[in-house]
Design a protein around this nucleic acid. Structure first.
Length: 371
DNA sequence: TAATCGTGGCA
DNA sequence: TTGCCAAGATT
């Protein structure tokens, strides 16, 4: 009785019927993505490859679909199965991941592949089993369980948070709202098509229920949505204020041999850009702001200013002065290596390091066509 | 709980 | 130009 009264006193509340409307919309308007099995094929009995689902989900963490597509296809072409990835050297995986960001994902990807390849039955088919693997958290475990194995898991990513906060008019700010949002999603998951439902929610969030200027007129859930009634669904979800982004400065050194080789080294496995390749650099890793020391070049030479680059990380902005020296003798330094010009594009260079090298040697990081 | 951890696109 | 933010995980 109480439910009836509430329904009369307030806008419609999302229900299993809403999930059905969403699935109908998904059948007609789903995005066609390289890692996805269409609802039609799924209905025909085509099973998604857990390896494909896992690989795409890890790549898609905090990363746009368009950025992931070429990497996903390249990985699949090079390592068609999880056993192939397990057999690959970690260094090769890091090089293949270069440019995609959040490099701990690549380390965990390799560790996870090694683990899964050692299991007699391959990928675990439960949320708990998946959650125990490296690089697989609550979201990814639920996504793989639902999409690859048809488990009725509540898949909650940024899209689902936004769609659900609006659908139920949840006023609690994120991240505090994560718990009530999850509880709301759990009431919606259809037992027969949990994977399609998860992907439908994400497609809706990506194409209709967007962060800015949602296209509510096209939304299959507009009759169910409690936020649309307020006239300002864009207001939700609310978020706690975020910390400001500090600025750091530093110096990068590009040492060039007469044959075009440059001096590189590998960063420590953990932390920022962990395990990736860098040019020798100074001063920006953990600068106590008032401590000013003079930059220490990797080797004595005539260092000349080649330019400066700026790069924005998640939690700080960096301005890097780039110095270049043309050196005659090929001195060898501990923990450094001279890398031939032709091999530079194949190095595991994060974007910030490509920028620095390009500032000193235009074109050096770009693959040039053979012939 | 709160930091840390990349990159590119877009308003 | 600057901030926002995108299929989050880890510690």
């Amino acid at each position: 009785m109480l439910a009836v009264l509430e329904e009369q006193a307030s806008p419609p509340t999302a229900s299993p019927a809403a999930a059905r409307r969403l699935l109908d919309w998904y059948d007609r308007h789903h995005r066609d993505l390289p890692w996805r099995v269409s609802p039609a094929d799924l209905a025909k009995g085509v099973r998604p490859d857990p390896y494909h689902v896992w690989l795409s989900e890890v790549m898609l963490q905090q990363t746009t679909v368009e950025a992931v597509k070429p990497y996903f296809l390249a990985f699949l072409a090079r390592w068609p199965a999880v056993e192939d990835l397990a057999a690959a050297p970690a260094e090769e995986v890091m090089r293949a991941w270069a440019g995609l960001g959040y490099y701990s994902r690549a380390r965990n990807l390799k560790a996870c592949a090694d683990k899964v390849a050692s299991l007699p039955d391959g990928f675990p088919d439960t949320e708990d089993g998946l959650r125990a693997l490296p690089g697989i958290g609550a979201y990814t475990a639920a996504a793989i369980a639902a999409i690859a194995f048809g488990r009725p898991a509540a898949v909650v990513d940024g899209n689902v948070e936004r769609v659900t906060a609006r659908l139920f008019a949840i006023e609690t700010p994120l991240p505090e709202a994560k718990r009530p949002i999850r509880a709301a999603v759990e009431t919606l998951v259809p037992i027969d098509r949990p994977g399609d439902f998860a992907q439908a929610m994400m497609d809706l969030g990506a194409t209709i229920c967007t962060p800015k200027r949602p296209r509510c007129m096209l939304c299959p859930l507009k009759a169910d949505c409690r936020a649309i009634v307020t006239g300002d669904p864009e207001r939700l979800p609310l978020r706690a204020p975020k910390a400001e982004r500090p600025k750091r400065t530093g110096v990068a050194f590009v040492a060039v041999r007469p044959d075009g080789a440059i001096l590189l080294r590998t960063r420590p496995a953990k932390g920022l850009l962990g395990g990736m390749t860098e040019v020798p650099n100074f001063g920006w890793s953990k600068v106590p702001r008032n401590v000013s020391r003079s930059p220490e070049p990797p080797l004595p030479a005539e260092w000349r200013r080649a330019g400066s680059i700026s790069h924005v990380f998640t939690h700080f902005a960096l301005e890097l002065e780039v110095l270049r020296a043309d050196v005659e003798a090929a001195a060898t330094l501990p923990d450094h290596r001279w890398v031939a010009a032709v091999d530079i594009p194949g190095e595991a260079l994060p974007t910030v390091m490509k920028k620095a090298i390009e500032a000193a040697i235009p074109g050096a990081t770009k693959r040039r066509p053979i012939n």
